[in-house]
Amino acid sequence: MNGSHSVLPGFRLSLGLGVLYLSLIVLLPATTLVLQASQIRWSELVFYFTDPRLLAAIRVTFLAAICASLSNAVLGLLLAWIISRYEFPGRRFVDTLIDLPFALPTAVAGLTLSALFAKNGWIGQWLAPLGFEVSYGFVGIVLAMTFTSLPFVVRTLQPVIEDLAPEYEEAAECLGATRWQIFYRIILPPLMPALSIGSALALVRSLGEFGAVIFIAGNKPFETEVVSLMIFTYIGEYAYEAASAVAFFLLLTSLLILLIVQLLQRRYRARGAA
């Protein structure tokens, strides 16, 4: 059915204005970046991407983002599970508070977490004697990324867990399955699609995270610099070409991850239908 055949009004108006708006706001700026990046010569590109400082930043960013997504997968699974399965005092409060990282500005999150986990901070002072320094180090980056992307896993898992019938677990228990077997064999498989999608979204968000990370990272070259900070530094130095090259790389990586998620989703759905 073509839009103009519907009885509802406003097809041309809404399509025209919607396309115009998205073109101006999203497509045009994004295209500018792609075009700018495509004008860079290969020799320049090789020069940018062999800079050890940038390579170190890429390594730190990817490692931290992967660590953050994995800890989010575990923590998110735990939180989503208890919220959608058990009745306990404060359940609604926790359920609401899960969205805090999306509502709280990233700069505020970064500032607060760095103060909380600093050597003299409320939590940091207990970790420091154990030789565990969070703020101004790699762990701090992971923490900030975990915080800002926490809701993704919880919110994608919740509806799936609510749809999960406890009868299967009870049956498995009656048949003598151990707790680990129940988790691994009964509970985890149907949760895998949502879990991987949520973690992938968290990964994309973490790779590009800027505000929260720069407050807590310490931002030492070669050690605790992230890619988005490198882009920011290039912009500050008016090195727009280098900034565009790295930004384009970051954009491509994010889109690639999202594409993989889409393909995974389709495969899961196909298997579910079969």
Binding site: P29, A30, T32, L33, Q36, L207, G208, E209, F210, G211, S228, L229, I231, F232, I235, Y240, A243, S244, A247, L250, L251, S254
Partner: peptide, 12 residues
């Protein structure tokens, strides 16, 4: 799109 990249797009 990372916020910094978004800013860069508009700057360009």
């Amino acid at each position: 799109i990372s916020p910094v990249v978004a800013g860069l797009c508009y700057l360009l």
